[in-house]
Each structure stands twice: as C-alpha cells, then as structure tokens.
C-alpha cells in the first residue's frame, strides 16, 4: 500500500477536525440552519483576504499559549485545566502594570509582560502544592481556582483598575506598554512573536534539558521515573509553573497586545473561555508546543471566521466551541484509528 507523505499524527488530527466539522453541520441541519452557507462564510471570513489571515493569527496568539499550558501538564502526567483562571490573573497583572504604573518606554512593555506571566504562574501554585502535598486531583483544584479567579479578577478590575468614568472596563494600557500593531487593518500585534518565542523556548526546554526530560519521563512512565530518582513533587511544580507562565502571558497579550480595547472588560468578556479553548487546541496539536502553534492557527481561524458565520448564516459563533468539544471527544477514542486502519489495510 502506498503511504501518504504526511506524518500520521497530522493525518489523524485533520480527520478528527473533519469529523468535528461534519458533526457541527449535522447540528446546524437539526436546527434548520444552512451549513454550506455557514461554513463558506466561516472559511472565507477566516482566510479570504490578507487582513483576515492576520486577524486569524491575532485570534491564534492567546490560544497557542493556553494550549501550551495544557500540553505541558499532559507531558508531565497532569490534567491541568487551570489555564482559564491563570489567564484571568495574567490579564490583571498586565493591566495593573500597563495601565497604572508609568515606566520608561521599553522597560514598561517588558514589565507589563513579565507581570502578566508572574501573576499567571502564582495562580498555578495552589493547585500544584495541593497536588504535591495532599494528592488533590488537579481537575477539581484547577476548576475551583478558575471560579475563584473569575470573581477575584472581576473584583479587582471593577474596584481597583477601572477607568474613571467608564465602569465597563479597566484603565487602558499606556502607549509605552503596548505591543506595536503590525498593520492598520488587523488587530495583530508583535505580541505573536513573543508567544511564538515562548512556545519555542518551552519546546527546547522540554526536549533539550535534563529537567525537561525528567518531566516528560514522569508523564510517560511514572514508575520508570521514580526508579530513575525523578522527584514527583518537583515535576508537578515545574509543569504547573511553566503552564502558569504561558497562561499568564496569554492573558497579558489580550491586554497589551490586542487593539482596540487595550484593557480588560469588567465582564472579562475579552479573555473569557480562551483557557478552555486551549484544551482542544493542545489535543489537536498532540500536546506538542509546536503542534499547538499549528493547531492554534486553525482554531484561530474558526474563532475569527465564526463571527462571519453569525452575520451570514445566523448561526451563533459559539457553535465553534461545540465543534471544538466534539473534536476533543473524537480524539479521545483510539479505537477509531484501529478501526480505520483495519478497514483500509485490507
């Protein structure tokens, strides 16, 4: 049998995405929408012009980072779904430094970015310690921390960071703390280069250093890791810390790297669910930092194109998130591939 010149994970991811899109089309048919019209609007909207492609990349920027949070967790044997809350806190940290602290140009941008990452990492510490000390399952602890973070971030945004006279959002980032906008026609900023660089650094760290190797060993084969003398607690803390930095950076990019708001809405409307979306992105990207970047572009396209789906076919853009969930469910079923292979290899 002649084999396609594509690696298997890529083919599997593409097939899963197609299954998700078909299932989404069935949902649309079920509720009397026109899926052809909707998907045409979605894909033309996402890739139809250079501006749209850049806009898709702007949507992909935070997703590659929250995907990294989940991916590093899985690589270390953890199911860290706390990117959502860590991202809220990252947005708060960035808003505080960028909006309220006047600092010299250059330093200001770096400080705001660092504050976002630091706040995200700090919010990852409690579930990490609870896991390491008490064995609390990270699914429960991270979800509880997400909800606490939601109310904490809303409280801080309204009471300490609000723009005077405009209660619906925080004080916007000062001009010295904004990533340069790349073109006038799209909201893509230089923040995407920081996000890409962070993904690359984490990739090099995980695959090129001893600590990274230990983390991956602990995730792949806990018994072997223990035998080799890898400290479980250290791996947990490290994995959560890297994830928190990534999620915090994701939150920061939405504040200091995303026109036109340059601020956090009091409803958290411009960051909400970016953390959860990252889970699907990570899984489609095979929990690999670089795979996550590619998958993020695809999900960025769904997010950006989904808005056109709403205009032209009346289908609520949130259906994209349902498709995301269906893709995740499909990816969870290994038998699907066994079945497909058995059928085709005959």
């Amino acid at each position: 049998m002649k084999r396609l010149p594509l690696p298997r994970p890529l083919i599997e991811s593409l097939v899963t995405i197609s299954i998700g899109l078909v299932a989404g089309a069935l949902l649309m048919l079920l509720f009397d929408y026109n899926p052809v019209q909707a998907y045409r609007a979605l894909f033309v909207g996402a890739f139809g012009s250079l501006e749209d492609i850049l806009e898709t990349l702007a949507f992909a920027t935070p997703l590659m980072l929250t995907a990294l949070t989940f991916a590093v967790g899985v690589r270390g044997g953890l199911f860290n779904i706390g990117a959502e809350g860590q991202m809220y806190l990252g947005a708060i940290g960035a808003t505080f430094v960028a909006g309220l602290l006047p600092l010299p140009p250059g330093l200001h941008l770096a400080a705001a970015t660092a504050a976002g990452m630091l706040f995200g990492a700090l919010w990852a510490v409690p579930p990490a310690l609870l896991k390491a000390w008490r064995g609390v399952h990270e699914v429960i602890s991270t979800i509880m921390c997400n909800w606490i973070a939601f109310y904490l971030a809303t409280y801080l945004a309204i009471n300490f960071l609000a723009e005077p006279g405009r209660a619906e959002r925080t004080a916007p980032a000062l001009v010295t703390a904004r990533y340069p906008v790349l073109t006038e026609d799209a909201s893509l900023t230089a923040a995407i280069f920081v996000a890409l660089a962070f993904c690359l650094v984490v990739y090099l760290y995980l695959w090129g250093t001893r600590a990274g190797y230990e983390l991956r060993l602990a995730g792949e084969n806990p018994d072997a890791a223990r035998y080799a003398g890898v400290k479980g607690g250290k791996v947990i803390l490290l994995s959560f810390a890297i994830g928190g930095l990534a999620a915090g950076l994701a939150g920061a990019t939405q504040i200091i790297g995303r026109p036109p708001a340059w601020s956090l809405y009091a409803t958290l409307g411009n960051v909400i669910t970016l953390g959860f979306d990252g889970i699907g992105v990570a899984l489609v990207g095979r929990n690999h930092p670089i795979g996550g970047v590619l998958a993020a572009v695809l999900f960025g396209a769904l997010a950006h194109g989904g808005r056109f789906m709403e205009y032209h076919a009346g289908v609520l853009s949130e259906l994209v998130r349902a498709i995301n969930g269906l893709i995740v469910i499909t990816l969870a079923v290994p038998e699907l591939w066994m079945l497909a292979r058995r059928r085709f290899s005959r």
Binding site: G280, A322, G325
Partner: peptide, 14 residues
C-alpha cells in the same frame, strides 16, 4: 478524562 472534558467544552458552546 479527555472524553469527559470534551463533553464539557461541547456543552459550553452548544
């Protein structure tokens, strides 16, 4: 675990 989380994400959009 992944299938269950997929269901949660699905519900969030559905």
């Amino acid at each position: 675990i992944i299938a269950g989380m997929g269901l949660n994400i699905f519900a969030l959009g559905f």
